[in-house]
């Protein structure tokens, strides 16, 4: 596994790989979104939730990605902290704003779904609260990096914060099992198989793959930007000598 990923440690190889992989992921995201949206709006109304069920096709992928991106952020932070991989630090820094946007979207679309179904924009439910904490970890990570002038120190401090925040990931995931929540329990990955009807499950999975591909494209593009930013800083240092 380490050998398989070793080529990504090298910035030159990474830049060559990402130059074709990012547009490929972007095109894949668009194609999957087109198919997912088509099937999502062709699906019948839910017998209980009516047309609000269509919010699921963008809410659930955003929530999954918010969590998944945080795992990527934590993994990259670990590699950066333990193995001093510069590219891993760039990957961690690049993941944070993307994850924050996905998590904010999960909260916003969840609120817009909750109001007509629960009668409230927000409840201090275990799932909602733990996702809000996830969002705050993203904001804290970005704020910490921005607040420390010394980039190496800022990267170390933010990486430690990101690793601490990983504790919240299983809490978000299992919150609907551990506590009695208003939020519905696990549906797609429920024990014994998915409880969602195929007509809803297919567009949901297509939209989730689309969001995942979009994240792949955006992450690669932002890491490329980070590599360029560091190259600019190195060239500036050479000029200053």
């Amino acid at each position: 596994m380490t050998q398989a990923l070793a080529f990504l440690y090298n910035p030159h190889r990474f830049m060559a790989f990402s130059a074709w992989a990012a547009p490929l992921f972007g095109a894949l995201a668009l194609a999957l979104a087109a198919a997912g949206l088509w099937l999502g709006f062709a699906a019948p109304e839910d017998y209980q939730q009516g047309d609000t069920v269509r919010i699921m096709f963008i809410h659930v992928p955003a929530a999954w990605l918010g969590l998944f991106v945080y795992v990527c952020l934590g993994g990259a932070s670990f590699l950066s902290l333990v193995f001093r991989q510069a590219l891993a630090d760039a990957a961690a820094r690049a993941a944070a704003p993307i994850g924050a946007v996905f998590t904010a979207l999960a909260l916003a679309t969840g609120s817009l779904w909750g109001k007509p179904m629960w009668g409230a924009w927000w409840v201090w439910d275990a799932r909602l609260t733990s996702v809000l904490v996830l969002f705050l970890f993203y904001l804290a990570y970005m704020a910490l990096r921005a607040a420390i002038d010394d980039e190496a120190k800022g990267a170390r401090a933010a990486a430690i914060l990101a690793l601490v925040g990983l504790v919240n990931v299983p809490i978000v995931h299992w919150s609907v099992e551990w506590w009695n929540t208003l939020h519905q329990g696990r549906t797609v990955f429920a024990a014994g198989g998915s409880r969602a009807a195929t007509v809803f499950l297919v567009p949901l999975l297509l939209m989730s793959l689309s969001y995942m591909s979009a994240f792949g494209a955006l992450w690669l593009v932002r890491i490329r930007g980070e590599v360029w930013r560091r190259r600019a800083a190195a060239a500036e240092a050479r000029l200053a000598r």
Partner: peptide, 8 residues
Amino acid sequence: LDLDPGPY
């Protein structure tokens, strides 16, 4: 396609 979500 059902593009009219009615009251929602």
